[in-house]
Design a protein around this nucleic acid. Structure first.
Lengths: 239, 239
DNA sequence: ACCTGAACACCGTTCAAGT
DNA sequence: ACCTGAACACCGTTCAAGT
């Protein structure tokens, strides 16, 4: 792709130049500004016009550094996920490391819900590979048998992605500083109005919804899957 | 031209106006046409202009029956999920029923990938409640203890949603009748170019990617989570 | 009650023109 | 090399006007 050549050229030019000019446009500054907008005002607020205004330039200038909106979101996502990967690098046993990494991912996506959306936009992007590597490597260390590795890693990653996507949806529904418990209460109330004969389980959920903790529940799901993975090798290792 | 005759016939039909006329606009017909467009040409092809053209009307006419695009997609999603729920109604043991329902969901979303996208757009929509009820009810029947029900159901649903979202992303990437195995091969090849010291697990995946089956892997994940859920009650029931 | 289609506000993206 | 900003092609949605 010619865009890659352009990027390389840009980088060479940038290092050649003296990089003390703080107000010079660069991919990093653009991505940084994009993250700020996404965090402050949500996914819909990120437009090239808003971005150009914030950077005091024209929208065309942004296209010199970034191919399109997708590349912009990919770079922003990579930045967030990258931090998680490096932050949780060193840790104790592999199962604890998986839990810690998953929690780090949860917290990052909770703080930047738009990441949850973008992880679904482009499959097999760099961020996804980082996630797979972080989890899969630790499953190997955990002693998961060769043939089960792909399925086990895929189960964990897909579960994490599902939660991430739901978090993003909730953030879109309850923007800024909406009263979360009031909103949850309203949802639960609407569930109790459904036919109890057809929706008994949803009625049960309605009673639990208000005092459940998303983060705790996320971790419980991770533990459930890890427990399931633990049953794979049981015949091998006995007990 | 036969167009003139058609126009006259339409006008007569309109003045006659018995409401079982097939060409009368209705929410059902609109949703049906929307599903056709989504299935045939993908998520981006569904615009009010395209929909109006296919229904031989103005875009404003659609707004008389449907509030906005979100309601349209929600109705389309409900239609697809509703079929799955009723199709898998009767079945054997609760764990087999969960597997059957999950597989039905997988197949439906595989056939209509845009459903996977929309399930993330609006949280707690009707389709989501159907899914929760179908799975949660069977977890109850399975004997999962009261306190673990919410977490267990949430783990299964989030996993299913994660897979659904990935499927939708893949469908977006490989539209129509792209050569799937060639595309997978290209992805795997790109992975082998990564630094093996930093990405050992991704390298391992690259060797497995070509001959893995999405549906099988999906079911393996369901079984993993069910196995994990099975470990919850172990102390209660002994063995 | 229901339909028509032009118009509005807003996007992502391009590009001739500037420095 | 890099930036400017008008212009283009397209959206979802609205609305005065028709039947």
């Amino acid at each position: 792709m010619k865009n890659r050549n352009q990027q390389i050229r840009n980088q060479q030019a940038r290092t050649r130049r003296s990089e003390r000019r703080t107000d010079a446009l660069s991919k990093e500054r653009i991505v940084e500004a994009a993250i700020d907008i996404l965090d402050a005002d949500g996914e819909n607020a990120l437009t090239f016009r808003a971005l150009a205004a914030r950077l005091s330039t024209g929208s065309g200038a942004i296209y010199w550094h970034v191919a399109d909106k997708n590349e912009l979101l990919t770079a922003a996502t990579d930045a967030i996920i990258g931090r998680v990967v490096t932050d949780v690098a060193a840790d104790a046993g592999p199962d604890q490391a998986i839990r810690a990494f998953a929690l780090g991912l949860f917290d990052a996506i909770d703080a930047h819900p738009w990441v949850g959306t973008h992880l679904f936009r482009e499959p097999w992007q760099a961020a996804m590979l980082e996630i797979f590597e972080a989890i899969g490597g630790r499953l190997q260390a955990l002693g998961v048998p060769e043939e089960a590795l792909f399925n086990a890693g895929s189960a964990l990653v897909n579960y994490i992605l599902g939660v991430a996507g739901q978090n993003a949806a909730n953030a879109r529904l309850l923007p800024q500083g909406t009263d979360r418990s009031a909103a949850l209460g309203a949802v639960a109330a609407s569930w109790t109005e459904l036919d109890p004969a057809r929706y008994p389980f949803v009625h049960h959920l309605a009673t639990k919804l208000s005092d459940h903790d998303d983060r705790e529940q996320f971790l419980a799901g991770i533990d459930l899957i890890l427990a399931g993975i633990g049953t794979i090798g049981r015949t091998d290792r006995g007990s």
